[in-house]
Design a protein around this nucleic acid. Structure first.
Length: 266
DNA sequence: CGCCAGGCTTCTA
DNA sequence: TAGAAGCATGGC
């Protein structure tokens, strides 16, 4: 158990539940429980950017979870840049630092393949069934299924997951990973467009899903996923293209656009 | 019943 | 190269 003070702040609830990750659950006591990097974690927002983590110690934080929670990014600076935008400044003021998670790439890829033409509650349900059925059991919960397991499945095996037409894409992606068709980790050091193309070679992965994977698991904060909500938002507010002050952090700004758009819908 | 959900592939002209 | 249809499923 450790307590961490995040420089620049940490809105734990929105960070874990704004549609970038699908396995974190709020507990009755207000804490959040989830699994990442084969670790069961419960996190409590203590306010003022402080978080208590159960399941994480100093070593695993510095080795893994500092990166997972984007601890080292200068969010004060990032939010200062985004606040130059009159449309997003209120959302930044209201919510503080909604951090980008650096998730496990395969899990991120699979869940965003599930996300295609779907809604967030159902993405979570499908992901949970997928883990319960095919993930290694751990204290009554389940890890995310490893690619080797998924590569060996058939579409019929996937039927209970109820993921519809997305099942074959998941299996195919797993086979590409285990067969060496794509190396997700290598995309971190690749220029954005090149990494997008690699991901889009996978059946069922278009530009939107590719950008989500690059933003939420592969250290590309400049990736800018455009779904139907963001498309509407940018056409309305930035008809001539994104402002210069979003340069390099387009994906982080996108989170606030998504939140602002969601809150503007009654 | 019809419409929609943080899309993508395939077919068509 | 652009636009529409089809794709599985489930909530409303």
């Amino acid at each position: 158990m450790i307590e961490v003070a995040f420089p620049g702040g940490m809105n734990l609830a929105l960070t874990l539940d704004c549609g970038q990750a699908f396995r974190w659950k709020r507990n009755n006591d207000g804490g959040w429980s989830g699994i990442a990097y084969n670790t069961r974690i419960t996190a409590y927002d203590l306010g003022y950017g402080r978080v208590r983590f159960e399941g994480i110690d100093d070593n695993s934080f510095s080795d893994i979870f500092a990166d997972y929670f984007d601890y080292h990014r200068d969010y004060a600076g990032v939010l200062n840049n985004i606040s130059q935008d009159a449309v997003l400044a209120p959302a930044v003021e209201k919510h503080g630092a909604v951090r980008i998670l650096n998730q496990e790439p395969w899990e991120c890829l699979a869940t965003f393949i599930f996300s295609a033409c779907n809604n967030i509650p159902r993405i979570k349900l499908i992901t949970e069934r997928f883990c319960d059925l095919f993930g290694e059991e751990c204290d009554g919960s389940h890890f995310f299924p490893v690619p080797e397991t998924v590569a060996a499945l058939t579409e019929a095996d996937m039927a209970p997951v109820r993921s519809g037409f997305r099942a074959k894409y998941i299996i195919n992606a797993a086979r590409n990973i285990t067969g060496g068709g794509i190396d997700l980790d290598s995309l971190s050091d690749m220029p954005l467009e090149q990494a997008e193309k690699k991901l889009m070679n996978l059946n069922g992965v278009g530009k939107k899903v590719a950008d989500c994977v690059l933003l939420f698991s592969l250290h590309h904060p400049e990736a800018f996923p455009v779904d139907r909500h963001i498309a509407r938002f940018t056409e309305l507010n930035y008809p001539d293209g994104l402002p210069e002050y979003f340069k390099g952090i387009e994906g982080i700004a996108q989170q606030y656009m998504f939140i602002a758009q969601r809150e503007s819908r009654v």
